[in-house]
Design a protein around this nucleic acid. Structure first.
Lengths: 190, 190
DNA sequence: GTCTATAGCTAGATAGAC
DNA sequence: GTCTATCTAGCTATAGAC
């Protein structure tokens, strides 16, 4: 693996663990095993390197979500697959955690991939839910965009509850709660 | 207002805006209009001052949530009041945002008030939902603890989506989505 | 491409005068 | 109680040699 790649991956890890404010160029260099001069040769500075890392993490998150949402199965099965997919709950969401970083969110360049990732996720989730509604799996009264936002929010908020408790349990509870509500929203139950 | 009070309130504000890692003693002193010596006279250091500030914010969040959840009205009305209560959405949750702070979450003392606040909120929400279920407002199939975790997670995740989008809209969508799912979980709809 | 040197600034605190 | 001085370390680069 070349230096550029090691720098990007180290930055991804540190942004996930410590956020933008908590991540120093020095720490990145140490983790990547690269020198000062090397880093500044390939990237103009911390914001530039962070941008590359955030874009990479955004791609990966999108791919993982799409794997669940575009798999074969009914709409509810695919949403369930998204909610139940294996996660390192206590580490939180590598993209979602960036929304708490004032300096990152204040930069249009750095916020853009974060924004686009969640916009895409909500849209894709809404498509799946709309299919489910059209196919009679979900009550016609549920607005796909709103249900989608709620489902995505349960996951992001689940991370918050889990980290507060230092336990994955509240995350799992929230997911089960969301699944039960979706089941209750099935027309069969109406 | 005395110096101690100004220091605590300034720390509350800065922790909300910038988190623990992003908040320096220097910045606190400047905002509070207090000198170096003054701060270190009243508090042993940054962790000590942060603890006082986090406890204060936790009290305030709990009081605000309890106002909605213990108000008169049906269970669903009270949960709705909690979800719909006035919020500065783009600023995020002053307690929830702290869960993204590795140094804070790594300290048992500092994490404790955060943990207790969400534990209390989930418990209180579950009580209200259990009342609603007992009173026939909610389907017997909905487990109060799980539904409670989902509802609280929708709010915390809603903040994440809103900050990513730099707009309160996704938060409001998620809340409407959650309310619709709760309505779909009413036995009248079964 | 990578290294070392240098630089101005802030973090987080301690010490002692007033 | 509050002030100023001082301290070690780290942050975020830039400059120029190799």
């Amino acid at each position: 693996m070349d230096t550029v790649e090691r720098l990007i991956q180290s930055t991804q890890e540190l942004l996930w663990e410590r956020g933008y404010v908590g991540t120093s160029p020095r720490a990145i260099q140490r983790r990547a095993g690269a020198g000062q001069g090397s880093m500044y040769h390939h990237f103009s500075g911390k914001p530039d390197l962070a941008l590359a890392a955030v874009r990479r993490s955004a791609e990966q998150m999108r791919a993982a979500a799409d794997a669940a949402l575009s798999a074969p199965g009914t709409a509810v099965e695919r949403v369930s697959a998204y909610l139940l997919r294996e996660r390192e709950v206590l580490r939180g969401c590598p993209i979602g955690r960036l929304t708490q970083d004032p300096d990152l969110i204040a930069s249009p360049d750095l916020r853009q991939p974060v924004d686009e990732t969640f916009a895409w996720l909500r849209r894709r989730m809404a498509e799946v839910l709309a299919e489910g509604r059209a196919g009679g799996e979900l009550a016609p009264g549920l607005v796909p965009e709103e249900t989608a936002a709620a489902v995505v929010a349960v996951v992001q908020g689940g991370y918050v509850l889990a980290r507060a408790a230092a336990s994955p349990e509240p995350f799992d509870q929230a997911v089960r709660g969301a699944l039960a509500l979706l089941a209750a929203g099935a027309p069969a139950a109406s």
